[in-house]
Amino acid sequence: MAKTSEDLRSPLSRARGLGSAKDGVHHFWVQRVSALALVPLALWFAFSVAMLATGPADYYAVHYWVSAPSVAVVLVLFLATALYHSVLGVQEVIVDYAVGSLRLTLLLISKLLHAVIAAAAIFAVLKIALA
């Protein structure tokens, strides 16, 4: 990610700042931990999507479902975990294909979008549940 500034830094400084034993391991580890947490959450979510999609297309039924405390809490957990896992995963994909300033631009856009989606979706759940 430091491609754009690497010309100004010595190889040693670059190694110290971005060494694989620092950020890389953390990225790898939290990606796996979030993946593990997503196993039960994703199964629950997939089933819920199918249940709602085959049920009545009725606003009040859906509103009632989201506002149940147990559903709202698990939904927030799913959203937070999935978006955290997603931002790490998309970062990995961007870094694989894009270099230089394009890489930096895409990384910033991806992080901004993930933050906005997470904030908006979680706010919506809370608004529904606390209404």
Partner: peptide
């Protein structure tokens, strides 16, 4: 993985539509 990342956007839109009330949800549900 990329598809699911885009899917979170749909999930957010769905939740926002519910939070927005029957009119908003009514535009999305069909």
């Amino acid at each position: 993985g990329i598809g699911l990342s885009l899917g979170t956007l749909l999930l957010a839109i769905w939740l926002i539509a519910i939070a927005g009330g029957p009119q908003w949800y009514g535009a999305l549900a069909p």
